[in-house]
Design a protein around this nucleic acid. Structure first.
Length: 496
RNA sequence: GGGCCGUUAACUCAGUCGGUAGAGUAUCUGCCUUUUAAGCAGAGAGUCGCGCGUUCGAGUCGCGCACGGCCCA
């Protein structure tokens, strides 16, 4: 508190005077109060005469959000996790000591009050206090009551204030918890086992992305924060678990934007004896299940002004077909590698030396098709080149049994039939190493132990990753990933 | 990484042509026993993001930096 301004100084002085007068500022040992939402749902419909005929006593606690003083009586609104309730204190209804405390309360203080319910002249359900105690003194003024806190930088750096002031922000994080719980319930119901695999890995694998690097002192080795749990989850399939999932953080050393946070939450699950086609259906069921849990089963949801219909079945396109039908690019141009380079260049997405035909197709897709996929759409048949861990398509071995799911113009999920032939997997890793040497920083590393695991035999399986933050954005109508992560990363504040 | 925009009291925002910094909320003092963006009267509160420059004089003009936002890569 070295940056004390006048308001803070005055509050601190006033608080210390209260303490001197025998009013503890930070007492503890209270019993749990009655939740406000329970009081409102139980008595919100009762009339003034009903409340008068049968008085109900309650103990409530919460933060003072508004305070209106009339000299010998005071109104305040307190807020607890479930809602707001008005408290009315009259001088002749409480002890002298109590009223002297009440007179010195500030907006932001946490208090506890006991009394009975009544209705005011304006018919608002209100607790007439018989007793009121200060629970926690607040020294900093809350943001302006009418406009709230608008400065996005402060809202994120001091999320605690954002949460105090904005019901809608608290609601997003409640909904986030419900969504994640629903996903766990869905998987557990289907006999998936939740597991935890290393966040720190010696070989960062399972995705194409740049990792964060750290160092383990005792072992004297570099470790990487995982970019994906994939290869460990599949080792568990080798070990004999047939259905596993992990729902936790991944870390990717990339830029920060409204769509990317360096650490983000990912669900990955693997199911033996099934294919990517089974998983597309499972994904449709999963979204319907989540919709039921958080949206009352409504599958038409409004997102950023658009209506998105999650009712299955969802549209399916082969990648190449989507480039032709949705992207409007001639099929002949896409089937000829030389012409594809020209298409990529004309779209300004470049064409690096290490990028082959398949990679360019996906870059063109990202540019011209992805933003247009507003309604849920599965894109299938990804090129082998960009799918080093996916099973080859038996009919067309240049393609893989893989899909990605797009909703609202964003990738939401990526799934495929798993490559379980160790000989093929080794070749794929070798191809990745070549790309790496040619300059592709995101190319996959060789993982000899993973090959060894496959050599013991992994049952045929399909696996999928779903970006949880994006799912939460969809169901909470949030446009930025920062809106659904309580403490998103930012450059550190600089003390001037 | 590039372009554009922003940064003024604790919060939300004004600030004209370059001429001593403004409002509302919040805070403090006084009045007020059914208010709810309570009201009335008064008071205090500022490193105008940071630095350099132009100028008699810079919140305002120029350059650089920091942080943030939007768009592009």
């Amino acid at each position: 508190m070295d940056d004390l301004n006048a308001v803070l100084r005055e509050r601190l002085q006033k608080a210390e005077q209260m303490e001197t007068d025998g009013v503890p500022l930070y007492p503890n040992g209270f019993s749990a109060p009655d939740p406000i939402d329970g009081i409102i749902s139980g008595f919100g419909m009762k009339s003034a005469t009903e409340l008068e005929a049968a008085p109900h006593a309650f103990v409530v606690a919460g933060r003072i959000m508004a305070l209106r003083s009339f000299g010998r009586s005071i109104f305040m609104h307190i807020q607890d996790p479930g809602g707001r309730l008005q408290i009315y204190v009259q001088q002749n209804q409480v002890s002298k000591e109590c009223f002297s405390v009440v007179k010195r309360l500030d907006v932001g203080d946490i208090i506890r009050a006991s009394g009975s319910l009544f209705r005011t002249k304006t018919d608002e359900l209100t607790l007439l206090a018989r007793e009121l105690t200060l629970v926690t003194k607040s020294l900093r003024p809350l943001p302006e009551k009418y406009h709230g806190l608008k400065d996005i930088e402060i809202r994120l750096r001091q999320r605690y204030v954002d949460l105090i002031v904005h019901d809608s922000v608290r609601e997003v994080f409640r909904k986030r918890a419900k969504i994640i719980q629903a996903i766990r319930d869905f998987l557990v119901e289907r006999d998936f086992l939740e597991v935890e695999t290393p966040m720190m890995q010696t070989i960062p694998g399972g995705a194409t992305a740049k990792p964060f690097k750290t160092f383990h002192n005792a072992l004297g080795i570099d470790l990487y924060l995982r970019i994906a749990p994939e290869l460990y989850l599949k080792r568990l399939l080798v070990g004999g678990f047939e259905r596993v999932f992990e729902l936790n953080r991944n870390f990717r050393n990339e830029g920060i934007s409204t769509q990317h946070n360096p650490e983000f939450t990912m669900l990955e699950f693997y199911q033996a004896y099934s294919t990517y086609e089974d998983l597309m259906q499972l994904t449709e069921e999963l979204f319907a299940f989540v919709g039921a849990a958080v949206n009352g089963g409504e599958l038409q949801i409004e997102y950023q002004g658009q209506i998105i219909d999650l009712s299955p079945p969802w549209r399916r396109y082969r990648l190449l077909d989507s480039l032709v039908d949705i992207g409007g690019i001639p099929r002949t141009a896409l089937e000829d590698p030389a012409q594809t380079v020209e298409v990529a260049r004309s779209l300004g997405v470049g064409a690096e030396r290490f990028e082959g035909h398949g990679k360019l197709l996906t870059k063109i897709f990202d540019q011209v098709v992805e933003p247009q996929l507003i309604q849920p759409t599965f894109i299938t048949h990804y090129p082998l080149e960009v799918s080093p861990l996916s099973r080859k398509n038996e009919a067309e071995p240049e393609l893989t049994d893989r899909f990605e799911l797009f909703i609202a113009g964003r990738e939401m999920a990526n799934g495929f039939s798993e490559l379980n032939d160790p000989r093929d997997q080794r070749e794929r890793f070798l191809a990745q190493l070549e790309a790496k040497q040619a300059g592709d920083e995101e190319a996959h590393e060789m993982d000899d132990d993973y090959i060894r695991a496959l050599e013991y035999g992994m049952p045929p399986a399909a696996g999928e990753g779903i970006g949880i933050d994006r799912v939460v954005m969809l169901f909470t109508d949030c446009g930025s990933i920062r809106d659904v992560i309580p403490f998103p990363h930012q450059r550190p504040e600089r003390k001037s």
